[in-house]
């Protein structure tokens, strides 16, 4: 198991009870892929770890990924200082049903995608405009009525954000987002 020393020279002490310096160290967004046994309670363990230790969850997705459904992959996006991110990884690895933890942000180039269903309630000009914008964003129509569309959009989180923002300007909006799924680039297959 790789435990790094203080690789960054300016790494500060972590936020323990006796630290008085306000933590000004840069917080970064990291995407983790966590391979776990697909058993009852495993998601609660992971979520409980984050809430119990005060870590952030920006987004979380989970699904079984093996043919026999024995293993699940949890994608977690979190934000923290270098020390907190290292600690999150170590704490996740300590959970008994966790096989391995990949910090995709550190491990190298990876693909991150998200999917959203966006319902827009609009008529007349706004309705036509929503369709035109959807076309620009390469969103597809998943459902329609005379006064609404449901668009299906996928891509990077920023693209989805921006699309939703546009739609909000055109009418009443309801959003269902999947959260981030991520995988490393290249031909290497992550073992489960």
């Amino acid at each position: 198991m790789a435990i790094s020393g203080p690789s960054e020279k300016n790494a500060k002490q972590p936020g323990a009870a006796y630290e008085f310096i306000s933590n000004t160290e840069d917080k970064r967004r990291h995407t983790f892929a966590v391979i776990v046994d697909n058993e009852p309670g495993v998601l609660a363990r992971v979520i409980g770890l984050f809430s119990g230790r005060g870590y952030n969850i920006e987004s979380l997705t989970v699904s079984t990924v093996t043919e026999d459904e024995s293993t699940s992959r949890i994608n977690i996006v979190t934000i923290g200082t270098a020390m907190v991110i290292e600690q999150i990884k170590a704490q996740l690895e300590r959970l008994v049903p966790v096989h391995n933890v990949h910090d995709l942000t550190i491990e190298g180039p990876h693909v991150e995608k998200e999917l959203a269903l966006v319902k827009v309630k609009a008529t007349d000009h706004q309705r036509r405009e929503s369709l035109r914008i959807a076309d620009i964003y390469k969103a597809r129509v998943a459902d329609t009525t005379l006064e609404s569309f449901v668009f299906l959009i996928d891509g990077e989180a920023e693209k989805v954000d921006s699309f939703i923002e546009m739609m909000r300007a055109l009418g009443e909006v309801e959003v269902a987002r999947s959260g981030v799924v991520a995988i490393s680039r290249g031909s290497t297959i992550t073992p489960v």
Partner: peptide, 25 residues
Amino acid sequence: VDAFAPNSKKIHIDIDPSSINKNVR
């Protein structure tokens, strides 16, 4: 912690990786 053994090199042997670099680098 910010005044803990300030001029030392620290070697930490622990069976639990999450105990390492948790409170003190």
